[in-house]
Simulated assay, not measured.
Amino acid sequence: MMQKITPFLWFDNQAEEAVSFYISVFRNAKVGKVIRYGEAGPGPVGSVMVAEFELEGIRFTALNGGPMFKFTEAISMVVDCKDQAEVDHFWDRLSEGGQPGQCGWLKDRFGLSWQIVPEALPRLLGDPDPAKAGRVMQAMLQMTRIEVAKLEKAYAG
């Protein structure tokens, strides 16, 4: 089935580098069609204009569109992780050259925001006991990378 909506990522001139990086981070990833600028420009001849790629079954498009637009935290990619090992893998790789944020958020070296979320987090935050959920929230607010063991300890009281 064709994917109806595709995230389209605007880069200044790092689309090819970004695609290579993202492909190296995710196990189920591949590069698709790559279109390069020709003599008509506006980019340098032979440089990537548009590159399609896939991460974990989701198609993306990367464009070298110039410096007019930058990423903001208003849009982020969420990586759902089964355990701490996955959280650590994605946090370590995606934050290389980037900036850690609060509560599992980070910006990668291209300025794209990511949320690295263990499956335990929404389960613990959604507990019907407001005291348990509140302790988990307070623990999470102290974290950059989410630490499942600390969340579970807070949950238990």
Rank of each mutant, 00 (worst) to 15 (best):
E56S: 14
A120V: 05
A149N: 12
F21A: 14
E147V: 15
K82R: 13
E73H: 13
R27V: 14
K150W: 02
E86N: 05
S47N: 05
I23N: 12
N28F: 03
D129R: 02
I116K: 00
G57H: 09
T6C: 04
F8P: 00
E152R: 15
M2P: 10
A29K: 07
V25D: 10
L55H: 05
V31C: 12
G41S: 09
S95K: 13
L112M: 15
I35G: 01
R123S: 05
R123Y: 01
L9F: 03
I35W: 05
P128L: 10
A62G: 14
V48G: 03
L94S: 05
H89A: 07
G101C: 08
R145N: 07
E96H: 09
V148L: 11
M68W: 09
V148D: 09
M143T: 13
F90V: 10
D92I: 06
F26A: 07
G43K: 09
L112S: 02
V45H: 12
V78M: 14
T61H: 14
K4E: 11
F60Y: 15
E119T: 08
V79K: 03
D83E: 06
P7Y: 01
I5Q: 03
K153L: 14
V25N: 11
V50Y: 04
G104E: 03
R93S: 10
G101A: 07
Q14F: 01
E56G: 09
F8C: 08
I75K: 08
A74D: 13
F71S: 11
A40E: 15
M137P: 02
A29S: 15
N64Y: 04
G101E: 10
G66F: 06
K33Y: 04
R135L: 11
N13S: 10
V148F: 01
V48Q: 08
S95W: 01
N28D: 15
Q3M: 06
G65Q: 10
I146L: 12
G41R: 11
S20Y: 01
F53A: 12
W10T: 11
E119R: 12
E119Y: 06
K33A: 12
M140N: 12
Q115F: 04
N13A: 11
T72H: 11
D88W: 00
V148T: 15
G46A: 08
G57K: 09
M2V: 10
